[in-house]
Computed example of a mutant assay.
Amino acid sequence: MTSPARTTAKAAVRTAGVSVGTYVVLIAQALLARRRIGTTTDRPPSGNGLYGHDLDGDPLRCLLLGDSTMVGYGMKSVDNTPSALVGIGLSHILGVPVQIHNESFVGARSSDLQGQIDAAVDLKPQLAIILVGANDITHQVPAKRSARRLGAAVRRLRAMGSEVIVGSVPDFGTIKPLPVPLRTVCRYWSRHLARRQTVAAVEAGARVVSLSDVLEPLLLLKADALFGDDRFHPSAHGYATVANFLVDAAVTQWRSSVVRPHEEAPLEQMTLEEAAEWAVDHGGTQVAPAPRGRRWAAVLRWRR
């Protein structure tokens, strides 16, 4: 992610039809938010490598793609990065070694996914996990275009023989440095993109896990503990929370498609549009392709 301050009043006017007065307010709030959040050139330690090396079997090759949230922006210890969290989680639950290769980078948008895949072609990933979209919002990339690029990346990965997990863009309304009405506009934009991402990714063959508000219930108890010093990127606890949802979705997908592909999972089915709408309102929901056809989805609801 980069600063949400780049979500300018122009984007707000296009998406929410705000007045000229609100336009001016949004510009001022965006500049203030940029100052509050700031940036850093510090890079977290690389978490690439083999996890569960003492386990039997061939390593599961897992590719991580996306932006700073997948990089682990702000973390000082490798153990707190998504690479390590996903690698440890997958190897522990699946009982096999996991080779993690992370091609994500700070500031990445959906348009960068193809280049990240190019850089990992030799890996021949069996599993890919994607977190992207926040920078599409801050750079005012139309949601339809952003989702289309995500879908293209998923289709390419599927053609390479990889199972794909996508974490939809989080709800920007939970970001405290964004004042109202800027926060309201960003919430609308992020939820709109999350719907588009869900439809495009599932149509392309991915399992999508909604990250819309997965941190929000915990904020009532943990306050700022789930956000880092900039109050925009996750803290170590926040990264662990997000990683848990991604690992759970990855394990579910791997077991249902690779380990036990012929077993019918007792999942609820609804139209893809209905599933995308539900997922936006209920973080942790998993949406996957359904046997009934292209416009249907299998839904696994998360019980809080």
Rank of each mutant, 00 (worst) to 15 (best):
T138V: 10
V132A: 04
A143C: 14
G115K: 13
L123M: 14
A120R: 05
P125L: 04
K144F: 04
L127E: 01
Q140L: 08
I117R: 02
Q116H: 14
Q140M: 13
D122I: 01
L150F: 08
Q140T: 09
A120D: 03
I129R: 01
D136E: 01
L150C: 05
A152V: 10
G151V: 07
V132D: 09
T138F: 12
H139W: 06
G133C: 05
G151A: 12
A119L: 13
G115H: 14
D118R: 12
T138G: 13
S146Q: 09
Q116R: 10
R149M: 13
L123A: 08
N135D: 15
A153H: 03
G151D: 07
I129L: 14
R145C: 07
L123F: 10
S146F: 01
N135F: 11
R148G: 11
A128H: 05
L131T: 05
D118V: 07
R145K: 14
H139L: 10
L123T: 04
D136P: 14
A153M: 08
D122Q: 10
S146N: 13
V132L: 06
A128E: 01
P125E: 06
T138I: 03
K144N: 10
G133P: 07
I130H: 03
R149G: 12
K124C: 13
L127C: 03
V132K: 00
G151Y: 10
L123E: 01
A120T: 04
A120I: 14
G133Y: 02
T138R: 04
K124A: 15
A143L: 11
N135P: 08
G133H: 07
A147E: 07
R148T: 14
Q114P: 00
D122V: 02
A143H: 13
A128C: 08
D136Y: 07
K144L: 12
H139C: 06
N135M: 08
A134R: 03
D122T: 06
I137P: 02
A152E: 14
L131Y: 00
A134H: 00
A143T: 11
L150P: 01
A147Y: 09
I129M: 15
R145G: 08
D122G: 09
D118I: 06
A143E: 11
R145L: 13
G133N: 05
I130P: 00
G115R: 15
Q126D: 10
I117E: 02
G115D: 14
P142V: 09
D118M: 10
A134S: 15
G151Q: 11
I130N: 00
G133K: 01
G151E: 07
R149H: 09
I117K: 00
G133F: 00
D118Y: 06
A120K: 04
H139F: 10
G115L: 05
A143Q: 10
V141I: 15
A143R: 07
N135E: 04
I117P: 00
G151L: 06
A153I: 03
Q126R: 11
R145Q: 12
A119Y: 09
K144T: 15
I137R: 00
L123H: 08
I130D: 00
H139D: 11
G115V: 09
G133A: 08
D136I: 09
I130T: 09
